[in-house]
Design a protein around this nucleic acid. Structure first.
Lengths: 253, 253
DNA sequence: TCGACAGCTGTAAAATCTTACAGGTATCGC
DNA sequence: GCGATACCTGTAAGATTTTACAGCTGTCGA
């Protein structure tokens, strides 16, 4: 296979930029680098947010952004986060979507009227045309990177911007994940192989007696391992241990 | 902000192509479309794989590919799947990586010797330069889309190919997810709000009595809801119910 | 050699979960 | 009206989990 000349297109987001992004060790430097990268793609505004689970059913927000302060203020005061169609969309999808599509199509869980209102208001703050990139993995419940341009004629889909915005988003997600984990307060002592094994079978619905037979140990020993696992995880019973181990990705299949 | 002429670069992966991808309703048409798309990016070979959890600790593979048959045969016979550094890498990362980097750097859980062996063998089958894109979300444990070119001089990083390959990968992931879900044998009756609520608190380590007090219902009723949830999920106890509900994404925070 | 750690085992009481029996109200669409 | 559904409640026996007591072997690095 030969490489036609047109294959060689210098990207806006080059490897130097990506290397710098991954090297960011503070929220400030990361914000600054992303700001520059977004501008290179023709977007004045951007926001990255992720939900990091702290318990099986509670998550903490992590947000960095280059949005107009007034819009962020209005957005938060209006409690738009949960009604925001870009957020709802990101939770259940992996492909990027234009805001225009989110407002016109009826995705599951996306209220179309509310969507139009939020987008209309956003436009009045200078966010005319937007692209939202869902992000998953790295122990986050879900994340989102949104880009916005003040010019509704920004050629997102007609150019490689579409793809480059997705690439940039994955790097921001990885960089943010490193930052978040660095600042993680709760450090869990790693589980031993036996503890993981016992938890795994517990998650499969096996009783202590059954686990003992599968692992060819005494029932007392499974109780011992599961108890230790509960202590390490800081939980009160097996249900919670299984749940926490799962959401923290401690029970790799 | 103005759009410099160079912002308008017609992408190799355009919206038409992406629309066709999402419309694929069989493995064959999807394979064929991806084959064409990969070629447009200068890659002769590609493979998409995903692990879909069927129980909290067991997952099923889904693979479609445009790899040389001989290489796939050798790969499977040698049991490379678990030793493959691209697979190990994809499990814990979200940013794409060149095979060269995987072979030279020491990522967590990636055996460098084994990695070099697999890559060397791959090269002898015509897979000289490769790019692997990790994929997460959509209820999969993790997925991976790898591209390979026979020419070691393929300008992946020096062009927008890098970004476009990532965009294409997300579309393949979404399309494959739709295909897999369509063929899903096990259809779980949806949980009622009360059942989800009880499961949520169970996952937080609460006992039946505690859940009853939180929800201001009798303990008998929590037992009732959790029993119904267990039946709907086809499991034998609360541990398994919590685990299954979590991995199936039924307990949205 | 010694501490730290993984792994293993026993008994027993109390707490909790599972399963069986049996029954009630309210809402909704056909 | 009537079936389907969500939601709610009671009693009781038996299984399982949680927690307390206490003590063993073997490996590994300092």
């Amino acid at each position: 296979m030969t490489f036609p000349r047109e294959l060689h297109r210098k990207p806006h987001i080059d490897t130097d930029l990506l290397t710098r992004l991954m090297a960011c060790d503070t929220i400030e430097t990361l914000t600054s680098e992303v700001q520059g990268a977004s501008h290179r793609l023709g977007f004045e505004h951007w926001i990255y947010g992720a939900l990091m689970p702290v318990t099986p059913t509670r998550a903490e927000e992590f947000v960095i952004n280059g949005y107009p302060d007034e819009w962020r203020k209005h957005y938060l005061e209006s409690g738009y986060t949960m009604a925001d169609p870009t957020v709802t969309y990101a939770r259940g999808h992996v492909i990027p979507s234009l805001w225009d599509d989110l407002a016109s199509r009826n995705y599951r869980g996306v209220n179309s009227d509310q969507a139009k209102l939020i987008f209309t208001e956003a436009r009045s703050f200078g966010l005319a045309k937007g692209l939202s990139v869902p992000l998953h993995g790295l122990g986050c419940l879900f994340g989102i990177m949104s880009y916005a341009a003040s010019d509704p004629k920004h050629p997102i889909l007609e150019s490689t911007i579409h793809a480059e915005a997705v690439l940039l988003a994955t790097y921001v997600h990885q960089a943010a994940s490193l930052l978040i984990n660095r600042g993680a307060s709760e450090k869990i002592r790693p589980l031993t192989p036996r503890e993981r094994e016992c938890l795994k079978w517990a998650a499969e619905g096996k009783s202590g007696w059954e686990i003992a037979h599968v692992l060819k140990i005494s029932e007392r020993t499974t109780v011992f391992h599961l108890m230790n696992a509960c202590q390490k995880l800081g939980v009160t019973n097996r249900q919670q241990a299984v749940a926490k181990a799962l959401v923290l990705g401690l029970l790799e299949i």
